[in-house]
Nucleic acid binder design. Sequence first.
DNA 1: ACCTGAACACCGTTCAAGT
DNA 2: ACCTGAACACCGTTCAAGT
Lengths: 252, 252
Amino acid sequence: MPTEGISVASDSVATDTPKRPRRRRGSINADDILDAAFSLAAETSLDSLTMPSLAAHLKVGVTSIYWYFRSKEYLLDAMTDRALERYSIGIPFISAASWDRSLREHARTMRRLFREDPVLCDLVIMRTTTYGASSNQVVMERFEAVLTTLIEVGFRPKDALDIYFSLAMHTRGLAMLERRQDMDREAGIQTPEMVDRDKLPTLTKLMKQGHTIGFVEEDTFEYGLDCFIEHAQKTLQKTQQAAITRRERRKK
Amino acid sequence: MPTEGISVASDSVATDTPKRPRRRRGSINADDILDAAFSLAAETSLDSLTMPSLAAHLKVGVTSIYWYFRSKEYLLDAMTDRALERYSIGIPFISAASWDRSLREHARTMRRLFREDPVLCDLVIMRTTTYGASSNQVVMERFEAVLTTLIEVGFRPKDALDIYFSLAMHTRGLAMLERRQDMDREAGIQTPEMVDRDKLPTLTKLMKQGHTIGFVEEDTFEYGLDCFIEHAQKTLQKTQQAAITRRERRKK
DNA sequence: ACCTGAACACCGTTCAAGT
DNA sequence: ACCTGAACACCGTTCAAGT
């Protein structure tokens, strides 16, 4: 009496589909699923992460995932949350002593982390609306720390908010653009030819000089940083000057 | 001999599906399809524009669309092209006399057009990589005109590129964020509560003062414009000063 | 409590026709 | 030359079971 015969319908005939055995209870959990989702997305891309492919990667029935995440959206939310947290931790704090230099370094690190990890990029940039409106405690605490330092340096709260928001958006916007470019390049799409070069003398000339029209150049990121940081420095000077004037007027 | 009986299988029984009659040849064309696609997307959203829904809107068989656009991607490309062209035309040129003021107005119009038209926003921001790398002649000519004017004003070509690129990205990045916020709001998602307010004293205080942490405020856009335009003004001064110095040195 | 396959609605696309 | 339905592969999700 062969006990192997218990299984449902895999009879004597050559089973072309190897018929994965049923997993025992507790053999998967939410964290395993997230791990698998990240590793699979890293292998291919976030776009090609589907519930069936994830299930196959995990060697689980597709529907099993639904016991841990009620929909794909919830799964992606959980992935975003994890990605956002690890990303935040990797970004340095601001020092009050040299706020401008360290704010620059802060932004550069943000940029580097995005560029290094396409999945992070897709999750954070394509899915989250804003930098600060996260329900993630770690992200908020980092944000809080930066703002507090800037205010401590002497910025008015509103200015600190504007500065940080602009910087973050510049970084994210650029990362998004570069991510798209990479994707296009992978897909084999090349720069479209200009239809009528005769009408575009300036652009044609610039391209001959080696400029990649419409594409992100290496120093574009730093250019934006310059704009924001220099403006911030000027704002700080004004604010401090105003404070001094106010104090002196009170003396009299 | 009833000639009506020719049709395939719509017999005597109450046809619950009204069985749209076959369209005659030449009754649709690429432009009609694009019109319908835009009107349908405007009614709902670009995301919910599917080939079946578009066909129904046009009262055509789904596969008929494929005679004019070989895939949905090609259809979206055509839509993007049209949207981009109309959008470009709506944006004012730069005047050399008051380049800073008109560059500001230029960016403000870009922003307004995006905000007014969610479909344009989704097509242009979510689908195109960069501002200048378009194969669209009109878009390129506008870009050319702005650059030419800035160079005429006295900017070095590279500076003109950086300025315009930064400005465009700021505008697009903000438009994207605001678009997402609107979508979230429509979907009934509210600002997530901060998990542990005790650890976020600065943020809590700012929120009490009416700041919407992490969300775009009305003047954020103008703040970025200030940064970029002021930086540009300074750059121009330096460039012109350098040119004067060079000329005077040559005199001696 | 956890895992599963069958089944459903829906989408993009192909193909072999009809007119 | 243009329009069409049947059919396919694939996806996200539900449900009624299995263990």
